[in-house]
Amino acid sequence: MPEPMTERPAGDAAAADSDAAAGGRTPVPWSTLAAVSAGGMLGALARHGLAEAFPPAPGRFPWTIFWINVAGCLAIGALMALITEVRPAHPLVRPFLGVGVLGGFTTFSTYVVGIEEAVEGGAARTGLAYLAGTLAAALAAVFAGMTLVRLAARGARRTGEERP
Protein backbone atom coordinates (compact mmCIF):
# COMPACT_ATOMS: atom_id res chain seq x y z
CA MET A 1 0.00 0.00 0.00
CA PRO A 2 1.44 3.42 -0.92
CA GLU A 3 2.50 5.76 1.84
CA PRO A 4 0.30 8.80 2.42
CA MET A 5 1.38 12.03 0.77
CA THR A 6 3.26 14.36 3.05
CA GLU A 7 4.07 18.04 2.80
CA ARG A 8 7.73 19.00 2.39
CA PRO A 9 9.60 22.26 2.62
CA ALA A 10 9.83 23.92 -0.80
CA GLY A 11 13.56 23.27 -1.21
CA ASP A 12 13.52 19.61 -0.19
CA ALA A 13 13.99 18.27 -3.73
CA ALA A 14 16.33 15.45 -2.70
CA ALA A 15 13.71 13.98 -0.38
CA ALA A 16 11.05 14.32 -3.07
CA ASP A 17 13.32 12.60 -5.62
CA SER A 18 14.04 9.73 -3.26
CA ASP A 19 10.31 9.31 -2.52
CA ALA A 20 9.51 9.32 -6.25
CA ALA A 21 12.22 6.73 -6.92
CA ALA A 22 10.85 4.58 -4.10
CA GLY A 23 7.31 4.77 -5.54
CA GLY A 24 6.09 7.45 -3.10
CA ARG A 25 4.12 10.51 -4.07
CA THR A 26 4.94 14.13 -3.73
CA PRO A 27 2.12 16.60 -3.15
CA VAL A 28 0.79 18.66 -6.04
CA PRO A 29 0.58 22.37 -5.26
CA TRP A 30 -2.94 23.77 -4.98
CA SER A 31 -2.11 26.36 -7.63
CA THR A 32 -1.42 23.58 -10.13
CA LEU A 33 -4.65 21.79 -9.26
CA ALA A 34 -6.56 25.05 -9.63
CA ALA A 35 -4.94 25.75 -13.01
CA VAL A 36 -5.79 22.28 -14.32
CA SER A 37 -9.36 22.51 -12.99
CA ALA A 38 -10.03 25.97 -14.42
CA GLY A 39 -8.50 25.05 -17.76
CA GLY A 40 -10.35 21.75 -17.90
CA MET A 41 -13.65 23.51 -17.30
CA LEU A 42 -12.99 25.93 -20.17
CA GLY A 43 -11.84 23.21 -22.55
CA ALA A 44 -14.77 20.92 -21.74
CA LEU A 45 -17.25 23.77 -22.17
CA ALA A 46 -15.77 24.62 -25.58
CA ARG A 47 -15.96 20.97 -26.67
CA HIS A 48 -19.52 20.59 -25.38
CA GLY A 49 -20.59 23.75 -27.18
CA LEU A 50 -19.17 22.52 -30.48
CA ALA A 51 -20.67 19.05 -30.03
CA GLU A 52 -24.08 20.60 -29.34
CA ALA A 53 -23.80 22.98 -32.29
CA PHE A 54 -22.75 20.22 -34.70
CA PRO A 55 -24.21 16.93 -33.44
CA PRO A 56 -23.34 13.75 -35.35
CA ALA A 57 -26.09 11.97 -37.24
CA PRO A 58 -26.78 8.48 -35.84
CA GLY A 59 -24.70 5.83 -37.60
CA ARG A 60 -22.59 8.46 -39.36
CA PHE A 61 -18.96 9.37 -38.91
CA PRO A 62 -18.74 11.74 -35.89
CA TRP A 63 -16.88 14.53 -37.67
CA THR A 64 -17.26 17.11 -34.90
CA ILE A 65 -15.50 15.02 -32.25
CA PHE A 66 -12.94 13.91 -34.85
CA TRP A 67 -12.01 17.52 -35.68
CA ILE A 68 -12.08 18.57 -32.02
CA ASN A 69 -9.54 15.86 -31.21
CA VAL A 70 -7.37 16.66 -34.22
CA ALA A 71 -7.41 20.42 -33.54
CA GLY A 72 -6.68 19.83 -29.85
CA CYS A 73 -3.75 17.56 -30.69
CA LEU A 74 -2.37 20.13 -33.14
CA ALA A 75 -2.57 22.76 -30.39
CA ILE A 76 -0.97 20.43 -27.82
CA GLY A 77 1.96 19.74 -30.16
CA ALA A 78 2.41 23.45 -30.85
CA LEU A 79 2.11 24.42 -27.18
CA MET A 80 4.57 21.82 -25.93
CA ALA A 81 7.17 22.76 -28.55
CA LEU A 82 6.65 26.44 -27.81
CA ILE A 83 7.05 26.22 -24.03
CA THR A 84 9.77 23.56 -23.94
CA GLU A 85 11.94 24.54 -26.92
CA VAL A 86 11.21 28.10 -27.97
CA ARG A 87 10.28 30.24 -25.00
CA PRO A 88 10.11 29.27 -21.35
CA ALA A 89 6.70 29.90 -19.86
CA HIS A 90 5.27 30.45 -16.41
CA PRO A 91 5.10 27.13 -14.52
CA LEU A 92 1.29 27.16 -14.60
CA VAL A 93 0.99 27.56 -18.40
CA ARG A 94 1.47 23.86 -19.09
CA PRO A 95 -1.01 22.66 -16.44
CA PHE A 96 -3.58 25.31 -17.41
CA LEU A 97 -3.37 25.13 -21.20
CA GLY A 98 -1.87 21.71 -21.89
CA VAL A 99 -3.52 19.54 -19.26
CA GLY A 100 -6.55 21.69 -18.48
CA VAL A 101 -7.86 23.52 -21.55
CA LEU A 102 -6.59 21.16 -24.24
CA GLY A 103 -7.05 18.05 -22.11
CA GLY A 104 -10.65 19.08 -21.46
CA PHE A 105 -11.19 20.06 -25.08
CA THR A 106 -9.96 16.80 -26.57
CA THR A 107 -12.15 13.87 -25.70
CA PHE A 108 -10.89 10.41 -26.25
CA SER A 109 -13.58 8.97 -23.99
CA THR A 110 -16.27 10.33 -26.33
CA TYR A 111 -14.18 8.98 -29.21
CA VAL A 112 -14.47 5.47 -27.74
CA VAL A 113 -18.22 5.92 -27.21
CA GLY A 114 -18.54 6.97 -30.86
CA ILE A 115 -16.78 3.79 -31.95
CA GLU A 116 -19.04 1.70 -29.74
CA GLU A 117 -22.19 3.41 -31.01
CA ALA A 118 -21.16 2.88 -34.63
CA VAL A 119 -20.46 -0.82 -34.09
CA GLU A 120 -23.66 -1.39 -32.08
CA GLY A 121 -25.64 0.50 -34.74
CA GLY A 122 -24.45 -1.87 -37.45
CA ALA A 123 -21.84 0.49 -38.89
CA ALA A 124 -18.71 -1.46 -38.00
CA ARG A 125 -16.77 -0.04 -40.95
CA THR A 126 -17.56 3.49 -39.82
CA GLY A 127 -16.44 2.59 -36.30
CA LEU A 128 -13.22 1.08 -37.61
CA ALA A 129 -12.57 4.10 -39.84
CA TYR A 130 -13.19 6.39 -36.86
CA LEU A 131 -10.90 4.30 -34.64
CA ALA A 132 -7.98 4.27 -37.07
CA GLY A 133 -8.58 7.68 -38.60
CA THR A 134 -8.70 9.54 -35.31
CA LEU A 135 -5.57 7.84 -34.02
CA ALA A 136 -3.60 8.54 -37.20
CA ALA A 137 -4.86 12.11 -37.57
CA ALA A 138 -4.27 12.94 -33.89
CA LEU A 139 -0.68 11.70 -33.97
CA ALA A 140 -0.04 13.52 -37.25
CA ALA A 141 -1.55 16.69 -35.76
CA VAL A 142 0.75 16.60 -32.71
CA PHE A 143 3.73 16.15 -35.02
CA ALA A 144 2.51 18.95 -37.31
CA GLY A 145 1.98 21.35 -34.39
CA MET A 146 5.48 20.70 -33.07
CA THR A 147 7.02 21.01 -36.54
CA LEU A 148 5.21 24.26 -37.36
CA VAL A 149 6.37 25.90 -34.13
CA ARG A 150 9.94 24.72 -34.66
CA LEU A 151 9.97 26.03 -38.24
CA ALA A 152 8.50 29.36 -37.17
CA ALA A 153 11.06 29.68 -34.38
CA ARG A 154 13.91 28.81 -36.74
CA GLY A 155 12.67 31.41 -39.23
CA ALA A 156 12.36 34.03 -36.50
CA ARG A 157 15.92 33.32 -35.32
CA ARG A 158 17.27 33.67 -38.87
CA THR A 159 15.41 36.94 -39.36
CA GLY A 160 16.72 38.23 -36.04
CA GLU A 161 20.30 37.23 -36.87
CA GLU A 162 20.28 39.17 -40.13
CA ARG A 163 19.52 42.48 -38.39
CA PRO A 164 22.50 44.54 -37.27
Rank of each mutant, 00 (worst) to 15 (best):
P91K: 10
A14S: 12
L92F: 04
A57V: 13
A34L: 15
G23I: 10
G40R: 05
G59P: 08
L131Q: 00
I65L: 15
A44P: 03
G114D: 10
G59N: 10
V28E: 07
A57I: 15
T84E: 15
P62W: 03
V28C: 08
R94V: 06
V70Y: 00
L42D: 02
A124Q: 14
C73K: 00
A123M: 09
V101N: 06
A78S: 03
A13M: 08
A15M: 04
T64H: 07
G39N: 11
F61R: 09
A22S: 11
C73T: 04
T134S: 04
A51E: 14
N69Q: 14
A46I: 06
P55D: 15
A137T: 02
C73H: 01
L102C: 06
A44L: 02
V36M: 07
G59A: 08
P88L: 04
L92W: 03
A81C: 11
A123R: 11
H90R: 04
L139C: 11
M80Q: 08
R25G: 10
L131H: 01
G39F: 06
F105Q: 01
V99N: 08
R87E: 12
A38F: 11
E85Y: 03
H90V: 03
A89S: 10
V113A: 09
A21S: 11
V101F: 07
G103P: 10
W63G: 11
I115N: 05
G127I: 01
